[in-house]
Each structure stands twice: as structure tokens, then as C-alpha cells.
Simulated assay, not measured.
Amino acid sequence: MFQIGDKVLYPMQGVGVIENIEEKEVLGIKKLYYTLNMPQNNLQIMIPIEKAEALGIRQIIKPDILETILTDFHHGNTDPIIYEDRRYCRNVNKNKMKTGDIYKEIEIIRDLMRKSQKNKLGLEDTNMLKSARRMFISEIMQVKGIAQDQADHLLDEVLLAQ
């Protein structure tokens, strides 16, 4: 269970801060909810506590893990099918994104960048890459305590260092 003030990643949305934990009655059923403030999207979201794990909500990563991820960003193989089959690529990446797993998020960015070097990305791939970057950048910002343009620049440097 998270606490008020915890910084968490909400898949497909980015990093948010738990501002409140409160009981609400919806359709006659009382449940505990997290209230997340999503500053990057200027949103406030309420999530039932019992669904948080299933939704992939997790604590943001620790600074040492971020450094390891940035250092090892280009390690790993890309599934060759993503170069040929757009539907497969879309489904694999959508499933990875929904998990909230930082390593899956990195695979999306890494693999779509590799794909973009071979072929021009289609609209779905471009949008997926933007979403994965946005989520990762929101986490970099919180972990390092830096502004969005600095986090963007840091990721771009890592991507160019192939």
C-alpha cells in the first residue's frame, strides 16, 4: 500500500503523487481510493486501492536503478518480427506499456528507435514511442529532480550514444 506523498508511476499516464487516501461510496459500495495528482498531464485521478497493483501502479525507481538503466539502455536484442509485422509490434508494445514495468518501457523506446533506423515509423509506432518517452521522461524528472527539457536532453544523449 502506498502512502500520501509517494511518487508512483501510472502506466500510460506517467508519474504522479499520491495526494490523498480516502473512502468513497460508489453505487452503494464503500472503497478506499488513492487520489493521484499527475502534474505533467495536469490531471487528478482516483484509483481504487485494490486495483492499483493490477493497473501496474508502482513506486518510481531508485536513482541507482535509473543510472544502471541509462548505462545499459542499448543492451538486449530486438524481436525481429517487429520490423515486419505492424500489428504484432503494436500489440507487443501496448502490452509492455500497460505493465508499468520500467524495463519493458525501455525496450519499447530502444526497439522503436532501432526500427526507425531501418524504416520510417508509422503513426502507431510514432505515437507509442512518444508515449513511452513521455512516461520515461516523467520518471527521470522525478528521480533526478530535473526539469522536462533536461530529462529530454538526457534521454536524447543516451539514445545517440549507441
Rank of each mutant, 00 (worst) to 15 (best):
residue 2 F to T: 08
residue 2 F to M: 13
residue 5 G to C: 04
residue 5 G to W: 04
residue 5 G to I: 00
residue 7 K to P: 03
residue 8 V to R: 03
residue 8 V to A: 06
residue 8 V to N: 09
residue 9 L to Q: 01
residue 9 L to N: 06
residue 10 Y to C: 03
residue 10 Y to D: 01
residue 11 P to R: 06
residue 12 M to S: 04
residue 14 G to M: 03
residue 17 V to C: 02
residue 17 V to L: 04
residue 20 N to F: 03
residue 21 I to P: 03
residue 22 E to H: 05
residue 23 E to L: 07
residue 25 E to N: 10
residue 26 V to S: 10
residue 27 L to D: 06
residue 29 I to E: 07
residue 30 K to L: 11
residue 37 N to M: 10
residue 37 N to H: 13
residue 37 N to I: 07
residue 40 Q to G: 07
residue 44 Q to S: 13
residue 45 I to K: 05
residue 46 M to C: 09
residue 47 I to R: 02
residue 48 P to I: 01
residue 49 I to N: 04
residue 51 K to R: 15
residue 53 E to M: 11
residue 53 E to N: 14
residue 54 A to E: 14
residue 55 L to R: 14
residue 56 G to V: 10
residue 57 I to F: 13
residue 58 R to I: 03
residue 58 R to A: 14
residue 59 Q to C: 08
residue 60 I to A: 00
residue 62 K to P: 11
residue 62 K to T: 14
residue 63 P to V: 01
residue 65 I to M: 13
residue 67 E to L: 10
residue 67 E to D: 10
residue 70 L to W: 02
residue 71 T to P: 01
residue 72 D to F: 14
residue 72 D to G: 04
residue 73 F to D: 08
residue 74 H to C: 07
residue 75 H to S: 10
residue 77 N to L: 13
residue 78 T to I: 11
residue 78 T to S: 10
residue 79 D to W: 09
residue 80 P to R: 06
residue 82 I to T: 11
residue 82 I to G: 07
residue 82 I to L: 06
residue 82 I to W: 05
residue 83 Y to P: 05
residue 85 D to E: 10
residue 88 Y to F: 15
residue 88 Y to N: 11
residue 89 C to Q: 12
residue 89 C to F: 08
residue 92 V to T: 15
residue 94 K to D: 14
residue 96 K to H: 15
residue 98 K to I: 07
residue 99 T to W: 01
residue 99 T to F: 05
residue 100 G to T: 05
residue 102 I to Q: 02
residue 103 Y to N: 15
residue 104 K to T: 11
residue 104 K to E: 15
residue 106 I to M: 09
residue 109 I to E: 12
residue 110 R to G: 11
residue 110 R to A: 12
residue 110 R to Y: 14
residue 111 D to I: 05
residue 112 L to C: 09
residue 114 R to V: 06
residue 115 K to P: 06
residue 116 S to P: 06
residue 116 S to W: 10
residue 117 Q to Y: 13
residue 117 Q to G: 12
residue 118 K to D: 14
residue 119 N to M: 04
residue 119 N to F: 09
residue 120 K to P: 10
residue 123 L to G: 02
residue 126 T to V: 04
residue 126 T to H: 07
residue 127 N to W: 10
residue 127 N to E: 12
residue 128 M to I: 09
residue 130 K to V: 08
residue 131 S to H: 09
residue 131 S to A: 13
residue 133 R to E: 14
residue 134 R to V: 02
residue 134 R to L: 10
residue 135 M to G: 12
residue 136 F to P: 00
residue 138 S to Q: 00
residue 138 S to Y: 00
residue 138 S to E: 02
residue 139 E to Y: 00
residue 139 E to G: 01
residue 141 M to V: 04
residue 144 K to R: 13
residue 144 K to P: 02
residue 145 G to A: 05
residue 145 G to F: 05
residue 145 G to L: 04
residue 146 I to K: 00
residue 147 A to W: 05
residue 147 A to M: 09
residue 147 A to V: 12
residue 148 Q to S: 08
residue 148 Q to G: 00
residue 149 D to L: 11
residue 151 A to E: 03
residue 151 A to K: 02
residue 155 L to I: 02
residue 155 L to Q: 01
residue 157 E to P: 02
residue 158 V to A: 02
residue 159 L to W: 04
residue 160 L to I: 05
residue 161 A to Y: 11
residue 161 A to C: 11
residue 161 A to P: 03
